[in-house]
Structures are given as C-alpha cells and as structure tokens.
C-alpha cells in the first residue's frame, strides 16, 4: 500500500473544503464544505493509524471516531443556528448577516 495516495486525496479534499467555505453564500452549503474538511482530517488519521506504529495501538482510528462524533454534534447545533437565522431573516446567505448590532425597530 502506498500511503501517498490517501494522503494526497485528503489534502485535495481539505483544499476543496476551504474553497467551499470561502466561496459559498448559502449557510447549508458552507456546513457541507466543513464536513468535507472534517472528513479529510479523518482520512489522514486513519491512514496514519495504518502506516505508523504508535505507542497506543489504533489511536488514529479512535481519534477518527471522536472526530465523527464531534462532527455530528457540530452539525446539530450548526443547523439549529441556520434554521433560527432563516426564521429571523428569511434568508440563509452568510454574507448578509449583520455582524454589528441591529438598530432599533428590526432590520
């Protein structure tokens, strides 16, 4: 097994995730790109687990499992925020979210 193949795949997936986060306007698509980045990290962890000898065996796979759980928690809270944003503004475009405090009387 050549470890360079999954490593390069993971690097390309991470780059695509970064591109998606910066490019997309829709908040749900931004979350999908974040999932791509998390998965590339998982691929790195699993590949490192099979190719490198560690003091504790299977540390990489266990970290990958933990990252999957963290991603599930993140997507739950993230989608709750996105739905709340949609409820307040009827739009999920991330570049229309005002970062400063809203003036009196709504939008």
């Amino acid at each position: 097994m050549r470890p360079v193949i999954p490593y390069v795949t993971a690097a390309l997936l991470f780059g695509l995730g970064v591109y998606g986060v910066l490019r997309r306007r829709n908040a749900v698509l931004v979350l999908m790109a974040v999932e791509l980045m998390l998965n590339s990290v998982n691929l790195i962890l699993v590949t490192a687990d099979t190719t490198a000898k560690a003091l504790l065996p299977h540390g990489g796979q266990i970290f990958a499992l933990f990252v999957i759980v963290l991603a599930a928690a993140e997507i739950g809270v993230g989608l709750a925020i996105v739905l709340q944003l949609y409820r307040m503004r009827a739009s999920v475009a991330v570049d229309e979210v005002p970062l400063a405090e809203r003036p009196e009387g709504g939008r």
């Binding site: 360079v4 390069v8 690097a11 991470f14 780059g15 910066l22 997309r24 570049d95």
Partner: peptide, 30 residues
Amino acid sequence: LDRPGWPAALIGGGVGLGLAALLVDAYRWT
C-alpha cells in the same frame, strides 16, 4: 449560491496543492 470567488479559489487551491506537495515530498512512493 456563490460569491465571486478568485480569493476562494486562490486560498483553497493553495491550501490543497500546498498540503499535497508537502505530503508527496514526505512520503514519495514508499
């Protein structure tokens, strides 16, 4: 759905290809 995105392509491509080059250099064809 999209912002006009040369910066995104630049940063994303830079990160992806940079990491790929780094890992290729580290592992070669071992």
